[in-house]
Simulated scan of single mutants.
Amino acid sequence: MKSEIIAFVFGPVRRCGRTHQTFRHLLSLLEQTKIKVIRWITDSWWAYFDCLDQRLRLVRKASLQRLERKHLTFRTRLKRLTSRTICFSKSVAVHDTTIGLFINQFFFADKRS
């Protein structure tokens, strides 16, 4: 089974890292594009429990390992997300744009050809 990014959102940085509002924004994007998710493979984050139909949700660490591998590749290739590099920016807009461009190039470039 191949995993791929079909949508992404940026949310405010909190101590816990993620918010219900950010996840609901992602759900609305999926709804607007008429993408129907038939199975959610998630971790134990409370917003998944609150916002998703639990019959469609699986909590499986083994299934998430492939996704976590993509996250590691993402963080490794985007050095500007590390504050100890000379290309680090404090601008949220610069981070959002850079991340969006990277996702577009890394995950969708071969589909445009």
Rank of each mutant, 00 (worst) to 15 (best):
residue 52 L to I: 03
residue 14 R to P: 04
residue 26 L to N: 07
residue 54 Q to N: 04
residue 47 A to V: 07
residue 3 S to F: 07
residue 34 K to C: 06
residue 87 C to K: 15
residue 7 A to H: 13
residue 31 E to L: 09
residue 42 T to C: 15
residue 6 I to L: 09
residue 80 R to M: 15
residue 49 F to Q: 04
residue 73 T to E: 13
residue 42 T to Y: 00
residue 88 F to R: 01
residue 92 V to S: 03
residue 62 A to D: 15
residue 64 L to C: 05
residue 37 V to N: 01
residue 109 A to R: 11
residue 9 V to L: 03
residue 31 E to Q: 08
residue 69 R to Q: 08
residue 30 L to R: 10
residue 100 G to E: 14
residue 30 L to E: 07
residue 87 C to Y: 14
residue 48 Y to Q: 03
residue 100 G to V: 14
residue 79 K to F: 12
residue 62 A to P: 05
residue 42 T to Q: 01
residue 58 L to I: 14
residue 63 S to E: 12
residue 31 E to K: 01
residue 35 I to D: 01
residue 69 R to A: 06
residue 49 F to P: 01
residue 39 R to Q: 11
residue 7 A to P: 05
residue 46 W to I: 13
residue 15 R to N: 10
residue 71 H to W: 14
residue 99 I to V: 15
residue 48 Y to N: 06
residue 101 L to T: 13
residue 99 I to A: 13
residue 85 T to Q: 14
residue 5 I to M: 10
residue 68 E to W: 12
residue 13 V to E: 06
residue 17 G to K: 11
residue 29 L to A: 00
residue 52 L to D: 00
residue 2 K to G: 13
residue 58 L to Q: 08
residue 50 D to C: 03
residue 79 K to N: 12
residue 73 T to I: 09
residue 96 D to S: 06
residue 12 P to Y: 06
residue 85 T to R: 12
residue 43 D to L: 08
residue 104 N to A: 14
residue 9 V to F: 01
residue 14 R to K: 14
residue 31 E to T: 02
residue 73 T to M: 10
residue 53 D to I: 00
residue 33 T to I: 04
residue 60 R to A: 02
residue 46 W to A: 12
residue 22 T to E: 10
residue 29 L to T: 03
residue 83 S to V: 05
residue 66 R to L: 12
residue 82 T to W: 08
residue 109 A to W: 14
residue 41 I to P: 00
residue 11 G to L: 05
residue 89 S to E: 07
residue 56 L to G: 00
residue 105 Q to R: 15
residue 72 L to H: 07
residue 61 K to F: 05
residue 28 S to F: 00
residue 84 R to G: 12
residue 40 W to V: 01
residue 6 I to H: 08
residue 36 K to H: 03
residue 55 R to G: 01
residue 20 H to I: 06
residue 22 T to R: 08
residue 99 I to G: 04
residue 24 R to T: 11
residue 61 K to L: 05
residue 50 D to Y: 05
residue 25 H to K: 04
